[in-house]
Design a protein around this nucleic acid. Sequence first.
RNA 1: UGGGGUGUAGCCAAGCGGUAAGGCAACGGGUUUUGGUCCCGUCAUUCGGAGGUUCGAAUCCUUCCACCCCAG
Length: 345
Amino acid sequence: MPVAVALSGGADSLLALCLLQEQGYDPVAVHASFLGCGPKEQRLQEQLAGVCAQRGVALHCLDLQETFEQQVIYPFVQAYARGLTPNPCAWCNRRIKFGKLVQEVQGLGSNLVATGHYATLRRDCRYPPGLYRGRDAGKDQSYFLALVSREQLEAALFPLSGWRKEEVRAELARRGLSAVTARESQEICFIPHNDYRIFLNVQGTQLPGPGKIVDSYGRFWGWHEGLHKYTVGQRRGLGIACSEPLYVLKKDVNNNTLMVGPRSELHATSCRVRLINDLVRVTSWPEQVWVQTNYRQPAGLARVQEAEQGLAVLFDEPRSPAAPGQIAVFYSQQGRVLGGGEIHG
RNA sequence: UGGGGUGUAGCCAAGCGGUAAGGCAACGGGUUUUGGUCCCGUCAUUCGGAGGUUCGAAUCCUUCCACCCCAG
């Protein structure tokens, strides 16, 4: 069965390729570049070609820079300009890796795209496929996949679903292979030096200006440098000396004001979510769901009600406030992704 | 001008004769396919200045300076 494997250069996708090959698939390697074809990218492509040749697999390199700029980078910048905290990786999965890339791959004669994501798809001969957390709880990436639609999941394959991160390199070594790129992908791939604030400044977009920092009692504490430089829950970088650490509680876009407070005030009992992707119809969700509003923060129990503007999410226990623009992912008790959406308040 | 009070790192602050706690901020690093969180590390040869007492002073004494409060 023909299947395209999206190779990034990292260890994960390379092992995915090997596993599929050994399972009897007929894989084709696809490498998409998002950031143009500079010398670094050229070298990466050459190295990937070498590895693929070693495995007897054809490699196709695709230039998705333009789509990536339009579909990921531009919305990312616009979101910050509006005072939101976007999650570009979640959108990239929906729009690029399981969007544009899948379309491109169909032109190569494959209806399936495999990636090195740590997540599980259960096909139980039912529609749509069930998206579940990966076996490696510490590495589970279902959170970032929660915006991938039912139709897109039909074309997806996650060969690493049952694997643990620490096994991957050893398995590659067993096959005489190693990752082409030294570091694992992390941080925002299109942001140089890992500083999104500098990146925003050179994009030429109108960004919010300086404004006041106040606490929940309205007391003035200082000045902020533009709301796009802060996010809800942030501690470092406020520059305020107090007897205890202060966190960003809220960004008041209308008044261009940053509200801060001590950790004891850093909790929310609800949030509102614009549902973008329902992998299970909301009417079929259990009364209690697990909601995750951040990749690292553990999921918490919540009750969800349909409201005019999406979903009203009531947390069973107060938790750190979710930043508007971030992704909320809803899970069943069994770890199935029920849906995902964008937090807006 | 009388009377009282306070001066310890960028901010807050402990110490009250035995050789400068702690918190915040800042900076550096670690964790992490988003932002953020979290964790670790660094950060006053010196206590407003100058003298003195003492084996030894941020701590006691003298004096000067600065700021604050109350009177007028």
